[in-house]
Amino acid sequence: MIKIHFFASLSEQLDCSDLNFEYSGEHTVADIKQSLLKRDTHWQCLNNKNVLVAVNQTLSDANANINDGDEVAFFPPVTGG
C-alpha cells in the first residue's frame, strides 16, 4: 500500500486529499501517475509541469523510485512565509 496525499489547490481540483494506492509493482512516481491516469482522466492535472512531488516527505521528481509502504504527495508550488 502506498499512501498518497494531495494538498492545497490540487486537492480541491481533484476533490481528494488522501488516497490509499494498492502497490502493484510501480517503480517510479511516473508509474504511479500512469496507473492513476488509466483509471480516470481527471488525474491528468498531475502532469501539469508546476505540480511538485514529495516521496517520504522529501522533494523528488517523476523519476524517483517507489517502494511498497512509501508515502507520496503531490502539491502546487509552495507559498508560505
Partner: peptide, 26 residues
C-alpha cells in the same frame, strides 16, 4: 532561511477577499 522557506517549505496560502478565498500563486 526566509528565502528558502518561501520556496521549499510545503505551506500554501489562501487569501480571504471580498469575492471569497483565493489560493496565492507562487
Amino acid at each position: 532561511i526566509m528565502d528558502y522557506l518561501k520556496t521549499n517549505a510545503p505551506i500554501w496560502k489562501q487569501e480571504g477577499t471580498a469575492t471569497g478565498m483565493k489560493w496565492v500563486e507562487s
